Simulated scan of single mutants.
Amino acid sequence: MSQKGKGWLLAIAALAGIWLIRHGADTQLVPPQPTSAQAFAAGPVPQPGSPLAEPLKPSPPVRIRIPSIRVDAPMMRLGLDADGSLGVPPAGNDNIVGWYGDGTTPGAKGSAIVAGHVDDARGPSVFYALGTLQRGNEVEVVRRDGRTAVFSLDAIEVYESDDFPDERVYGASSYASLRLITCGGGFSKSTGYRGNVVAYAHLTAVR
């Protein structure tokens, strides 16, 4: 991997290491967590299901829909903050999802990184139910070019913060893939969420 690619991984990893772990609501209401039945089978590299759709040309996403958990939210571009960590969606908006704007756009070849809050001080946020997803569930991303990229879920896993697999989550992909990330792994009042829930999906159709 090039130095630029490594730098991108380190910068985007801050999303899990800084924001997603520490910005959950100060509450004991723990959101649903994925079961081991929805995880990838043992192996070094996550494998997508089939069929694979032909990747699209890059175009920014404008909306995301996950019918099985009733998500229907606008999307905003996220950049990096001065400290190299990823910017975050506004804390006061519980129904907005961010995507890493300097990375892959959803539907294009590569790993598109998408993140949403699990909750805030007022209660559940847009990705609260992410942990209930199951393999085969669909994720729809409406793009600025008018096309809708339809992804099929391959797996959903939960990681403790000290065992977060950066390369597995943020690494390059030879097909159009999507990574949905939020807080998870248990909650502590002193430190916030102890890990992250990550859903993996691949492009199966275009509308």
Rank of each mutant, 00 (worst) to 15 (best):
N137K: 11
R122K: 13
T182F: 02
D154Y: 05
C183N: 09
Y159V: 04
G136M: 08
S174R: 15
R144N: 06
P165A: 14
Y193V: 03
S188T: 08
Y159I: 04
E160N: 15
G171P: 12
I181R: 02
G136F: 08
V126T: 07
V150M: 12
T148F: 08
A155Q: 07
E138Y: 01
V126R: 04
R135I: 01
R194K: 13
S174D: 15
D162I: 01
Y175N: 12
P165G: 14
R179G: 01
G123S: 15
D119Q: 04
I156F: 11
Y159N: 11
C183E: 08
R179M: 10
A172D: 10
G146A: 06
S188W: 00
Y128E: 13
A149K: 04
R179V: 04
A149C: 07
R147I: 03
G195R: 01
Y159Q: 09
E157L: 03
F187G: 07
K189T: 02
A149N: 07
S190H: 01
T182V: 03
G185T: 04
G195K: 00
D162H: 08
G186L: 05
I181D: 10
D166M: 07
F164Y: 15
D163P: 08
Y128Q: 07
L180I: 11
L178S: 09
V126A: 11
I181Y: 01
R144D: 12
Q134Y: 06
L133A: 14
D154S: 11
S125E: 12
A176R: 14
Q134E: 06
A121S: 10
E138N: 10
V158R: 13
F164C: 03
G146K: 09
V142N: 15
D162A: 05
G131W: 02
Y128M: 08
V142D: 15
